[in-house]
Design a protein around this nucleic acid. Structure first.
Lengths: 210, 210
DNA sequence: GTCTATACAGGGATAGAC
DNA sequence: GTCTATCCCTGTATAGAC
């Protein structure tokens, strides 16, 4: 039907002109590559994922990757962003009237090992000076996680499963930190039982039976 | 006095023969290099610390570094190990009859930003396949941290500041996870108040006033 | 517009000179 | 014990094929 000639491109998905991969065809291709990259990254993790290795696994040259992603870091961030989108979509189906930390735990740990290692590596990069993209991404991400946790905690308090004398803001940061920290320990040593820790926190947050 | 000729070396510090840097002279030199490396790493972090960059800052070639440390990863692990030793020595002076999470927090965050980023990067590496040295180091490290936390919790319970109905083992993992996770959030966004989170956990662990 | 081919600077690891 | 020279791999950049 409609011609896709460059003279009359369908509207770019974002306002920024001059960028690459903004027009429908390129957008589709970019998404294809991103999807494949997610699979590859899940397998090989951060270190094994040189642009050349990823490109070869996908069937393109490493230079082609950089047509769609400005930099290696960018590609990885997009992978994590996409994974977050998927996880969020799944989470939306969950019941929110209990604290549901254990469920959050599932979502947290559900990521394939490779992607968990990737995320950890990217957080580490974000902490180094001079990686502003990564830093911005994770600052926003953790802020969003805390907000999400806060919403859950508000509902949980209304349901009567959270003590009245705790700051929900502080509790939100604590919950995220717990999931984060316990998953690190568990990834290092599967003998560490994450559920014990999570259940403990859930119980500590609950109001005393009296 | 005593000759230091290779024919009659003073006893190696460890039993492993054939290793490098085992004899007094080499041990001293190795410690010198390690001390300097700690300073450099604290400044430049993980990414900025190529062997060539570290070597240049110290005044040796990158090849010389590898006389004392098998690999770059090895050098970094030794830096972290040495830092842990120092931190442990300082911690021994602390009062153990309160939970003292805030104090632990200080010790935790006291590391220079560069070293915190370094530690994070090395943990990330430990999670990837094929980095057995790093993995082993951090598996042991977290186990030691949990043990230390457990000892503190036992004393704290005797002092009456920890609820009777919580598993101290689970609490130990939880405490470490909290310090770990909160410090990540704080490093990313200094607007996050770690003390709030830590105090909350301390209060949640405390027995109800009734 | 999309991709390949190629060049470059810098990395860790290694061998051999002194 | 330390250095220089070298190897192969990396991310990044650019030129030009189609």
């Amino acid at each position: 039907m409609a011609s896709e000639s460059p003279a009359a491109p369908e509207a770019p998905t974002t306002g920024g002109p001059g960028s690459r991969g903004r027009y429908p065809k390129g957008v589709r291709r970019r998404q294809e590559i991103l999807d494949r990259a997610i699979e590859v990254l899940a397998e090989v993790g951060f270190e094994g994922a040189s642009l050349r290795a990823v490109g070869e696994a996908i069937g393109v040259s490493h230079a082609a990757l950089r047509r769609y992603f400005d930099t290696r870091e960018d590609l990885f961030l997009e992978v994590l962003r996409e994974k977050d989108r998927q996880a969020l979509a799944e989470a939306h189906a969950l019941d929110r009237r209990t604290l549901g930390l254990s469920e959050s735990l599932e979502a947290f740990a559900s990521s394939v090992p490779g992607l968990m290692a990737l995320r950890h590596s990217m957080v580490a990069r974000a902490l180094e000076a001079g990686n502003e993209r990564s830093r911005g991404f994770f600052v926003e991400r953790y802020a969003a996680l805390r907000e999400e946790a806060l919403r859950t905690l508000v509902l949980a308090r209304e349901a009567g499963v959270v003590r009245d004398d705790v700051s929900l803001d502080a509790a939100a940061a604590l919950v995220i930190a717990t999931l984060d920290g316990l998953s690190t320990q568990w990834l290092l040593d599967p003998g560490v039982d994450m559920h014990h820790g999570v259940e403990l926190l859930e119980r500590l947050l609950a109001p005393p039976p009296g």
